[in-house]
């Protein structure tokens, strides 16, 4: 059963169209990768799915409901998580506060913060440190953990390995695979790191000039 079904999606910035006639679906528990060069519309696709920009045409069915014209906060409350490029953590809040902030928005009990800290051991010694002073890798893990605190059923990951060291990359892969196995989490992954993509994705779509060009198994994409 599809958790996300996108059809005929078009989106852009004002009069500038970026995505055209995009269609795909993601099954429950599936990890779908999207590859493509810079400027092909990968991040725009995630923004359109998360609600950061509203699509000009098409349908986005999430868990059976069309969310194409819903504001971002309503999509998030439905269980659509988004970890954007650049992490965008709250620099003035501590690691724990960043995570609690996401948990409260979804109405999840705050105990989930401790559960996520346990899943990401790298966060344990820095829970009371302000988000703004963390390293890039720590911020990436925090952004992911914060997203997971809202108990999403599908997460959109925008280039999570950008600028982080291989050990943290491996840690993220391991945790995401565990979460998929234990919770049936679905993931839509936009990434340029082929190793990360092949380690994680079940299926890869290739994006060219705002359209999805072809699908391939991860090994073929590599």
């Amino acid at each position: 059963m599809s958790i996300l079904a996108v059809s005929n999606l078009a989106a852009g910035y004002g009069a500038i169209g970026v995505l055209r006639d995009v269609g795909f679906d993601i099954a429950q528990g599936e990890i779908l990768g999207i590859l493509g060069h810079n400027g092909m519309g990968k991040s725009t696709l995630l923004k359109a799915l998360s609600g950061a920009i509203l699509p000009s045409a098409g349908a986005i069915l999430f868990a059976g409901a069309d969310i194409a014209q819903e504001p971002p906060h309503r999509r998030a409350r439905r269980g659509l998580g988004y970890v954007p490029q650049g992490r965008q953590i709250f620099p003035g809040l501590t690691v724990r506060e960043n995570m609690a902030f996401a948990a409260r928005a979804s109405g999840a009990p705050l105990v989930i913060v401790d559960e996520m800290i346990a899943r990401f051991p790298r966060l344990q010694p820095i829970v009371d440190r302000a988000g703004g002073v963390l390293s890039g890798g720590e911020q990436q893990i925090l952004a992911l953990a914060r997203c997971l605190c809202a108990k999403p059923s599908l997460i959109l990951l925008d280039e999570p390995t950008e600028g982080i060291q291989p050990s943290i990359r491996d840690e993220i892969v391991e945790t995401l695979l565990t979460l998929r196995r234990e919770l049936g989490l679905s993931i839509l992954l936009v990434e340029q790191n082929l190793k990360f993509m092949t380690d994680l994705a079940d299926r890869v779509l290739h994006m060219e000039k705002g359209r999805l060009a072809f699908a391939a198994p991860p090994e073929a994409a590599a």
Binding site: H73, P84, F101, S106, R146
Partner: peptide, 24 residues
Amino acid sequence: TRFGRAVVAIRENPVRAELLGYDT
């Protein structure tokens, strides 16, 4: 309060707060 902390976080990054589920 929680409300106040959310207000401050929204000031810092309204788009991010909205994407986390807050109706800014």
